[in-house]
Amino acid sequence: MKKIVIILGVAVLGLSSCKQFKKGEGDMMYKIHEDKSGETIKEGDFVAFNAIEKTEEDSVLYSSYDYDRPSLLVKEKSLFTGDLFAALGMLSEGDSATFKINIDSMVAKMGRPKPTNTKGKYLLYVIKVDKIIPKGKLTDSIFRGQIDTYLKAEQDKAKGAEGAKFNAYISKENLKPTVTASGLNYTVTKEGSGPKPVAGDTVLVNYTGKFLSGKVFDTSYPEIAKKAGTFNAQRPYEPLKMPVGMNGSIPGFEEGLMLFSKGTKATIILPSKLAYGEQGSQGIPPFTPLIFDIEMVNIIPAKPGSVSPQPAPVPAN
């Protein structure tokens, strides 16, 4: 069965740092924080777990908590002695631990680029196992059915919790947003001047897209991308140029752009129904609210009688 794409986030991990690391297989080092009874994870088992990946200098490279969903995978055969699959094989449901995995082995055996922000020998993985569905002797269809049941329950949980999380963020940040009829929330930090864009106009806009956790998933600013660890040297970092009113973006992003005149700086906060909804998108789980900090750089009016412009790509992970 192919490895399931990682989805992301749930739960809080309380760990004790007093225990010393022990020697595992190969170059792996490990420290068990919580050891529950039960069967350990076997090859072929489905696993839902929260994970933080960081350097020995404590720089976080990835955290499932940023996405408010657990990571999901089917345990595969180890790619090298002492890899992360071997680490998971030491744990049972409810266990938590920290593992040190050799960077050079990951580069050599997995083709992973070596992180540039560490001089250490290891990457650290702080893991808490939430759910195991054993493959055992189950047929593929029954096994897949059990996984689908679990995923549906998690999706229902996320749907039910979205409103409370959205409101908690507004309260925590002490915001007093304007709320549109669609449910879009926005605050203006700098007022622009001149007319607002109308359908068919083209806008140039700088933006930073974030989750409620503050994790940046996309931005037009290179310095923010570098700080967030999302920088991609292959893409241009410049204002997004796109027509408005052409259904070329997620509904809330496009609605937000049509609220502001040139020079405006604002933050729009979108419930998932105005973003990627119940389907989610690559790197964005279902029922996930999104935040966009935007700056309206320019508005180019449509020429009278001109052909409608083609939709531009939506900001994405």
Rank of each mutant, 00 (worst) to 15 (best):
M1R: 08
K2E: 10
K2W: 10
I4W: 11
I6K: 14
I7L: 13
V10F: 12
A11D: 12
L13G: 08
S17V: 11
K19E: 15
K23M: 05
G26H: 04
D27F: 09
M28I: 01
K31G: 04
S37L: 11
E39W: 00
K42A: 14
G44E: 03
F49H: 08
A51I: 12
I52G: 02
E53S: 06
K54Y: 10
E56W: 01
E56D: 09
L61V: 04
S63K: 07
D68S: 12
L73P: 07
F80R: 00
D83Q: 05
L88C: 07
G89V: 07
M90A: 02
I101F: 05
D104N: 10
S105G: 03
K109A: 11
M110G: 00
G111W: 02
R112K: 11
P113S: 06
K121L: 01
Y122R: 01
L123E: 02
L124S: 04
Y125T: 03
G136K: 11
A158E: 09
A158Q: 05
A161Q: 11
A164S: 13
K165D: 14
F166C: 06
N167H: 11
S171W: 02
T178V: 14
T180F: 02
T189W: 04
G192T: 03
S193R: 01
V198F: 03
V198N: 04
T202H: 03
L204S: 12
Y207M: 11
Y207P: 09
F211L: 15
F211C: 10
F211A: 13
L212V: 08
L212E: 08
K215M: 10
D218R: 02
K227F: 03
A228H: 01
P239C: 04
G245S: 05
M246S: 09
M246W: 10
N247S: 10
F253W: 09
F253V: 11
E255H: 03
S261D: 06
S261A: 12
K262T: 12
G263T: 00
K265T: 13
I268N: 07
I268D: 02
K273Q: 13
L274I: 12
E278L: 09
G280M: 04
G280I: 09
S281R: 15
L290K: 04
D293K: 08
I294H: 04
M296T: 06
M296R: 03
S308Y: 13
P311I: 05
P311C: 04
V314M: 15
